[in-house]
Structures are given as C-alpha cells and as structure tokens.
C-alpha cells in the first residue's frame, strides 16, 4: 500500500494524541514528539494536531512560535546551541563560538548548505558550574574546549543522527 508522508504524519499524530488523552494539555508533548521524529512541525502537522486536540491551528502555531526548541520548518540535522549567559561567557564561550563558526563556515542563526548543522545561541542551560556548555540536539556537552568542538563536529559528520554522539562526551 502506498503511504504518503502526510498519511504517516497523520497516523503518528492520531496515535500520540490518543495516548495523551486528546486534551489541550497534551499539546506540548505532542509537538515535541513530532519535532523529534520529523525535525519540523509543518503546516499540515499543526492542523492535524489542532484537530486531534479540538483547538485551532493558529493556537498551535502560537505555542510553537513561543518556544525556541519547536520549529515551523526544518533546520539542520544537528542543532548546536551554545550557552551565552554570564558563567559560560566568563568561562570562555567566545573561543568556542569562533571555533564553531570557523569549522562550520556559518555564523550564529544560520544553517549549513548541506542541511547538517544549525548554529544558535542559547540562554542559560543550567550548567553554570561546568561551563562553557553547549547543546547538540538534546545532548549536553560541558567544559567544552575548541578541540572537543572539532572532534564532536567530526563525529556528527560521520554519523546519521543522534546515535553518532553516544558516548562522545570524552572526545
């Protein structure tokens, strides 16, 4: 049977929505699951989600636009978020920022042409005692050095997804 991308997306959302009880409280967990699997929350996905939770698509979009970790359109496969808050700043986040920009050839807020990396600033991620810190997708890296940045990026390039980062904190 031919299953289109939209059919699969709809089936996923229906299943996840039911699991969440189908009420508006289930919105954010549902958005996170869609984001995780599809890397974005498309127009179509928002409308299906709204339908499942008996709210309006525009409300779903409003919530997505409020949170930086939810995306309306696909970005890099690896989203790198470097903490820019005071502790990490003092611990030397500027050097890492330069390393990241040089290694990836993009500046903050941009995505590489091959669609692999998106580089962003993050505000405090709660790792002030172990700064400088950064997030790659959902993985936290602490006491980051420029060498580690380089090695992690290599590991990412050589992998197909999050799996490439398993056990790589000590690189």
């Amino acid at each position: 049977m031919l299953v289109t991308e939209q059919d699969r997306l709809r089936d996923d959302i229906l299943a996840w929505g039911d699991a969440g009880g189908g009420s508006r409280e289930a919105l954010i967990p549902l958005l996170q699951r869609v984001q995780q699997k599809y890397g974005e929350i498309s127009d179509f996905a928002m409308q299906v989600i709204a339908d499942v939770l008996s709210i309006h698509p525009v409300e779903v979009q409003s919530v997505i636009s409020f949170y930086h970790f939810l995306d309306l359109s696909a970005r890099g496969k690896f989203i790198i978020r470097l903490c820019r808050t005071i502790s990490c700043d003092i611990a030397g986040k500027d050097r890492l920022a330069r390393q990241l920009e040089n290694d990836l050839g993009i500046s903050f807020g941009e995505t590489t042409n091959d669609g692999m990396f998106t580089l962003e600033w993050a505000n405090c991620i709660g790792m002030c005692d172990q700064g400088p810190a950064m997030l790659i997708n959902e993985k936290v890296f602490t006491r980051v050095t420029p060498e580690l940045v380089h090695n992690v990026l290599q590991a990412c390039r050589a992998s197909f997804g999050n799996i490439g980062l398993e056990g790589k904190e000590e690189l």
């Binding site: 127009d43 709210i55 698509p57 525009v58 409300e59 636009s65």
Partner: peptide, 18 residues
C-alpha cells in the same frame, strides 16, 4: 480561531495561521 498572538515578549505580533 483566525487570529492569535505569535512570538514572545517585545516581538509579539497578532497573526493569522502561517
């Protein structure tokens, strides 16, 4: 459900869907 606020803080705008 046509209009809703989008964005956060000083960047909020009232928008339609997409």
């Amino acid at each position: 459900g046509v209009l809703e606020g989008h964005g956060r803080g000083a960047d909020v705008e009232i928008q339609t869907f997409m």
